[in-house]
Design a protein around this nucleic acid. Structure first.
Lengths: 98, 98
DNA sequence: ACAACGATTAGATGATTAGCTAATCGTCTA
DNA sequence: TAGACGATTAGCTAATCATCTAATCGTTGT
């Protein structure tokens, strides 16, 4: 779960996820959407994959990246709910006695 | 908003926020909960404050840290909702035509 | 078989970061 | 006013990170 937050710390990687939200994309097409080199993007993909946020599928010469929504949901909503503003805000002690 | 995700990337800082969720705490008491030096913790506090995730209040010799829930909520839920699993999952195109 | 192409790996570099110790600052109290 | 104490700042180091170019790998088509 730490890997997920680490992955989300970079704006480029967050945007990759948002692009992937609209559907799977080959690495090259993703790379083309950013002003950095392809190897740099490949490193970003690697971080996202390591965190489980994306999965890959080989298709001929291309490698297709898929968003893994469940991992993102689990990390983000899990953390959110610990602070009481998730879906079901339950038993969250708000203030400390003293 | 990037500052928020950067701040959340470190497990120590995430735990500070979770401790603060139960109520305000002086810097020293927060520091005592972690196996690192006080200056190191002070630097973490600085990152959290920079991101707007905490606010401070002086009280005599102590500096009391407060959790700023709204900033956390805005960042986390805002991002979540962009993926369709926030409160109101609206008009999220799931697949791409081609 | 080989050239072309999509993508990753290797290797290097500059910037940022988390950590430490030592020094400083501000507030309280004897 | 002089300690004592909570906390931060200063200055340093080691590690991580984002980025680049050049080289390699795997697949396709001629």
């Amino acid at each position: 779960m730490n890997d997920v937050f680490k992955a989300l710390a970079d704006p480029t990687r967050r945007r990759v996820l948002q692009i992937l939200k609209a559907g799977p994309r080959p690495a090259g097409e993703l790379s083309a959407a950013f002003p950095v080199s392809k190897p740099t993007m490949s490193a970003h993909f690697s971080v996202l994959k390591q965190a489980g946020l994306v999965t890959t599928e080989k298709s001929g010469k291309s490698i297709i990246y898929h968003l893994n929504v469940s991992v993102l949901e689990e990390a983000l909503l899990g953390f959110s709910e610990a602070f009481g503003f998730g879906r079901n805000a339950v038993d969250a002690p708000q203030e400390r006695p003293q």
